[in-house]
Design a protein around this nucleic acid. Sequence first.
DNA 1: TAAATAATTTAAAATGTTTTAGCAGCACAG
DNA 2: CTGTGCTGCTAAAACATTTTAAATTATTTA
Lengths: 339, 339
Amino acid sequence: MSKKRLSIVDIANNLNISKTTVSFILNGRAKEKRISADMVEKVLKYVKEVGYKPNSLAKSLRTGKSNTIGLIVEDISNPFFGSIARLIEDKAYKNGYKIIYCSTYNDTQKTKDMISMFRDRHVDGYIIAPPEGVEEDITSLINESMPVVLFDRYLSTIDTDYVVVNNQFSAYNATQYLVGQGYKNIALITFANDQTQMVDRIKGYKMALKEHNFKEIIKELPFSEDLTESITAFLKSRKGIDAILFGTNRDATYGIKIMHNLGIRIPDDIAIISFDDSDAFELHSPQITTVAQPVEDMAEHIITILLDKLNNNGVGTKNQSVVLHTDLVVRGSSQKTKK
Amino acid sequence: MSKKRLSIVDIANNLNISKTTVSFILNGRAKEKRISADMVEKVLKYVKEVGYKPNSLAKSLRTGKSNTIGLIVEDISNPFFGSIARLIEDKAYKNGYKIIYCSTYNDTQKTKDMISMFRDRHVDGYIIAPPEGVEEDITSLINESMPVVLFDRYLSTIDTDYVVVNNQFSAYNATQYLVGQGYKNIALITFANDQTQMVDRIKGYKMALKEHNFKEIIKELPFSEDLTESITAFLKSRKGIDAILFGTNRDATYGIKIMHNLGIRIPDDIAIISFDDSDAFELHSPQITTVAQPVEDMAEHIITILLDKLNNNGVGTKNQSVVLHTDLVVRGSSQKTKK
DNA sequence: TAAATAATTTAAAATGTTTTAGCAGCACAG
DNA sequence: CTGTGCTGCTAAAACATTTTAAATTATTTA
């Protein structure tokens, strides 16, 4: 019933020519290979007529290129990563690349597995927001001269391209802003691990506090744990906090819900600022001040660097570190209200 | 430098046996093919030792199976689709399938291109939230006996598996709830097109109003247009509205922002309910009442049906239509406050 | 012990491409 | 005419698997 898909051999046979000729023509190498214009026309016409499409698996097998980019994010359902993924996907498709993706949930083993799967599928390039502990795997990719672009965070022991934001300054700046607003007991609630972006955010917060000789009040959260319980406990036990900087949108989302539950008013009881802008923070009333990452720019840089490497076969290009700047989007929620 | 990747031929040569034997063993067909236990052990040990991994492209080329599922959503950065994607991805990976995905933005042509790309890449199955106008393409997939599961909406003219929610009743029920709260001028603001979920939501809204002889106040929005302008205009021009049902989370997100800008208080001036729950609505104060889709269940059903078809080679299984029920999550924002 | 049967293992074909190396045919110079 | 160089095309190898059909070896059976 379903007529078997045409192969290049069928095309060649039906036209009584060699498949080599067909292949050359279809790959735009007609001039280079001195195929006559007549022949080119004949083949193209026929190919179009019968709707022949090369089998990309066979093509990939032979060429070693799959025209696929592996995208490894922390969690595709997180608005930050979702937006980046959307933009990257868009730009990749426009350049003839497909995306195959997965979420790591910061699980090192899962990430290793995924890298191995992607490698297996012969993806041409990797875009990764790496958890800790995958240095070896990434090094090994790089040794095989695979294009790899890290983003959101980087691995200090590896020389790769990466695109991140100035996390330390951003956190410093946000904290300073709170200080400027008159808050004196400023806490940092954050998902914490050894990833660079988190380390830097914590550093920035500490720097700002040190400048004013304020006491550090830090609640570090592990990624997988149930955040509700630990944040609730923290907020209950620590009296006197008048402002909170949240390290990620996820932390803030939980935090705000809990503050509502506990009857803590924002910003009257406690003012807040969150990393990563999102609709949720804009919709909240009062609107939440955020450290907005330039998602569009990040995606643009990531894909540009990657395509560059892909086109140059990674030859001769030096690695680039792109550090973009965030915007402190000041909204109602961190502004001191007169009592 | 980078030692070439081992192939099954290398394994066979190094062990002085045939690659056929290796292949059988690696594919778990040892007993069936009566390979001696000694041989099996020897091969497995060696394979493990040298870390050989079969080239999946070659495998796919030969077998016609790619162990890949194509996931086509409307917009991966939308929390609803992001969550579903995350869950589907998770379950797929657990069953040995990789996901390759794309967003359609409800663009028919883009969707056609994507389906064609996926077909090209020999994905084994499709999960699609289809825009209008792709009936032919999907029919053609089905004719080639490709497993296809639609979700969020279905195509009335095609007999496929699909997983949706009871949109009509959900909208009816939400509207009734507003009526029950004493609202009398209830508008529907929604992204509108011929997709079943949207048609049904509008129907449900109308049904409820008709029951009470209330006037329909409907603002239909095209997907691509800038929503801000048209919603603003609508809200300014239509006086007397005391409640709004939003057809999607996107509509509501825009709507709420605009209401804030216009100084319209929720729910005192206008109460609202939105389709699709999300953090943004829970964080909002007052919290927004929503029609929550059972995302987890949907993902579960989708992947179960698909895997079923994949395993049965789609033979003999009748198509299933799964219609799940939503929850009306009642929160502050639609509850009449005493004036 | 020869024949039949069973137990292992394998050669070769097939999957659909790209690419290398080179074949014919022809014009022209020596 | 012989060698050189171009033009236009192609045969065959290579990519790494799976699978069919059969070959080899071992074990019974008569």
